[in-house]
Design a binder for these strands. Structure first.
Length: 665
RNA sequence: GCCGUCUUAGCUCAGUCGGUAGAGCAGCUCACUCGUAAUGAGCAGGUCGUCGGUUCGAUUCCGACAGACGGCUCCA
């Protein structure tokens, strides 16, 4: 037996060691049960994840992968997916395997089965999984060849397809690279205590050493998913599950899900009487009730005022137009599928507006334009209607009719970078005023594989993309590429904001468009007397008002900051006798522009407090004998804090200050 | 659009193995009510999503459609 030299990397540093040939990675981490895999690199290769059963070679640099790390959890979840697939095939032997990768917070595995899974099946599968975990089966890696694998997996048509795609697996389907890597083909055998192969799966690995190393998991739901993500393919049955390094971590995850459900704007919208989606109107078409209307109007008032401050002119355009306009813009026939079908009358086809830009272009071209007018900035709340497929409608975040806070800046090419910068900064200040302050940017570019989806020359696209990229970089915010995500007429930057519980939402966008000015033959007269084509820059700050309202409701869990709260002050008399006193205070608050209501119902005092609390009113103003004697009122805040005996004038000033500062209380 | 689940009072839900239904909250009425998250009593409220089919009889079984929910695909 000869010696080989390796390096063990620990948080403390590098430790050079000599071990005998044939030493396995696990022998380095014998006393560290939280290490479930190894990251191995050497002078000639980048670090790669390996099973703990990996046999060390001379020159290896080895680091342990903790189960609670990002990679560790992925490995844990992938292994749990294997256990699930094994359980499924034990219960439903005819089930064919699709793919089973780890995903954000969990994993899934796709199966081709005759009948879709029902919730009772998930229970059965989960208990079978627990049995497999208890059996402590060993994940054993075995290198094979394409031909051998084809024989072994003759009964698994989807796996055979993946073998054929090896090397381009990343393109084959999201997650497919977890099954077949670009390198050698491997199969993992699950070996039980008797040394028999209980189950096997084509898989790149790595995996946990044994099934017993799965500390906590839970199956979440089943759903259909197209094979390789293509709607032309067969739908497989997907089971989603989650797995964590400890029972506590699993419980925390389940609590986070509960918290997200508690904040669901569809639920809160109903409870707080903000909006609804009447069937009689149609799917995806919201109505705003008086309280939701207050929030919506505050948002609109604010953003209209801000646009005007930033040099925009408020304009107005109709909801429908003849279809020729959208042919000129290029939207038809490009996006006919997502526009409502035309209405034919007076010899023309009229279309519901799905975007505002063509109409703004007509305002631009309504008369001759001078370079002195540029940048010309037009803005409106443009109502647009989009025929979203029935299955994608989702509360206020995906609707068929909505208003964009839409602007179009017409400028010279030279002005474009500054205008993009202006719009981006403007948008960020708007979002900050609404209490969102954690952002990253996404740069959506055209898909180089599907050039027919995009119009315009390669040079124009390159110029536009470069300008957006440069401005985005200058903000100092993280910039994430989104290849293929561009609109057909130009690239875009979108702002992604993180909410109070860390979820990200797409907010506004800035889009650079050199196509529509050409199609509409827009021009201005330059200083030298020549006619020039402007560049137009599209931008929506909220994106859609409806959607942004929904995001705010979730961000604040319905407890809106005072400036947005439908009822800012709920006045509650301790007893009937003090109602008049509070009506007087309420009158003064109304004069100061505050939305206040006095609860003079027959409910008892405590019940009124409870009602106001459930409505998430920011300020409860209470008055009883002690307050009246002092000419004062008492505050109760949403968190239950009290501030008693505050002089009326001070109380009003306090409420007004909170509204004006747009702070959360 | 596709797959699955679901649709009973304003809301949240029971229930009917086929004989037209019940609770809590909300609402209305009355009484009570002076200090920080539910006072009590009574009343009223439903063509059991819509339309067909099977049946002596359908809210219940079957089908179609609409809508909701969870995914997939999509998201200018």
């Amino acid at each position: 037996m000869s010696e080989i030299k390796i390096v063990v990397l620990t948080p403390a540093g590098r430790e050079e060691r000599s071990v005998t040939t044939g030493t396995k990675a696990w022998e380095l981490f014998k006393d560290e049960p939280e290490i479930i895999a190894a990251r191995v690199g050497n002078a000639s290769s980048a670090a790669a994840l390996k099973d703990l059963a990996y046999e060390l070679v001379d020159g290896d640099e080895v680091a342990g992968v903790e189960i609670a790390s990002r990679d560790g959890r992925d490995i844990l979840r992938h292994s749990t997916a294997h256990v699930m697939a094994q359980a499924v095939q034990e219960i439903f032997p005819q089930a064919k395997l699709g793919i089973g990768p780890p995903v954000q917070d969990g994993f899934y595995y796709d199966f081709d089965v005759e009948t879709p899974f029902v919730p009772a099946d998930l229970d059965k599968i989960e208990s079978r999984m627990r049995k497999i975990v208890k059996e402590n089966q060993r994940f054993s890696r075995r290198v094979t060849t394409d031909d051998d694998a084809r024989v072994e997996l003759a009964e698994e048509p989807y796996k055979l397809e993946l073998i054929g795609l090896k090397g381009s697996a990343a393109d084959a389907a999201e997650g497919a690279s977890a099954e077949v890597g670009a390198g050698e083909l491997t199969i993992y055998d699950n070996i039980n205590r008797n040394g028999e192969v209980a189950w096997k799966d084509l898989c790149r690995g790595p995996h946990l050493p044994t099934t017993k190393r799965i500390p906590a998991f839970k199956l979440m739901r089943s759903a259909a998913a197209y094979w390789r993500g293509d709607e032309k393919n067969k739908q497989l049955q997907r089971i989603y599950g989650t797995a964590w390094e400890s029972k506590e971590a699993l419980d925390e995850h389940l609590h986070r899900i509960e918290e997200a459900e508690r904040r669901d704007h569809r639920k809160l919208g109903k409870e707080l009487d903000l909006f609804s989606f009447p069937d009689e109107i149609g799917s995806g078409l919201p109505v705003f009730h008086p309280k939701g209307g207050v929030i919506k109007r505050e948002m609109e008032d604010y953003v209209r005022r801000r646009h005007i401050e930033e040099g925009f002119s408020y304009v107005g355009t109709p909801h429908i137009s003849k279809d020729g306009l959208f042919h000129t813009s290029g939207h038809l026939p490009h996006y006919a599928d997502t526009m409502f079908p035309p209405m034919e009358f007076e010899g023309a086809n009229y279309q519901l507006k799905a975007m505002n830009c063509p109409m703004h272009n007509l305002i631009f071209s309504s008369r001759g334009r001078s370079y002195r007018e540029l940048p010309l900035r037009l803005f409106e709340f443009g109502s647009v209607y989009r025929y979203e497929k029935s299955g994608v409608i989702h509360g206020l975040t995906r609707v068929r009719g909505f208003a964009q806070d839409d602007s179009h800046s017409y400028c010279t090419q030279e002005q474009a970078p500054d205008e993009v910068k202006h719009l981006l900064n403007f948008m960020l200040t708007v979002l900050r005023d609404f209490g969102l302050d954690d952002f990253y940017l996404e740069l959506s570019t055209r898909d180089e594989e599907k050039l027919d989806k995009f119009i315009g020359s390669e040079e124009d696209w390159a110029t536009a993309t470069a300008i957006l990229e440069q401005v985005a970089t200058e903000t100092g915010l993280e910039l994430v590429p989104d290849p293929g995500g561009a609109a057909f007429y130009g690239p875009k930057i979108s702002v992604q904001a993180k909410d109070a519980i860390g979820r990200t939402w797409q907010m506004g966008t800035v889009q650079y468009d050199f196509n529509q000015p050409a199609r509409f033959e827009l021009e201005y007269q330059a200083a030298d007397g020549s006619r020039q084509q402007p560049v137009m820059i599209h931008s929506a700050k909220f994106g859609s008002i409806e959607r942004f309202l929904g995001v705010l409701v979730e961000h604040y869990a319905g407890a809106m900051p005072p400036w947005l709260a439908p009822v800012q002050v709920q006045a509650i008399p301790v007893a009937d006798a003090f109602a008049d006193y509070l009506y007087d205070v309420a009158g003064q608050l109304k004069k100061a522009g505050i939305r206040v209501e006095v609860d003079d119902s027959n409910d008892r005092f405590q019940k009124k407090i409870r009602n106001a609390q459930l409505q998430k009113v920011p300020f409860m103003l209470i008055a009883g004998g002690e307050d009246v004697e002092k000419g004062a009122v008492s505050f109760r805040y949403r968190d239950g804090r009290q501030d008693n005996g505050v002089p009326i004038a001070d109380a009003i000033a306090r409420v007004v200050a909170a509204v004006e500062s747009r702070e959360q209380v």
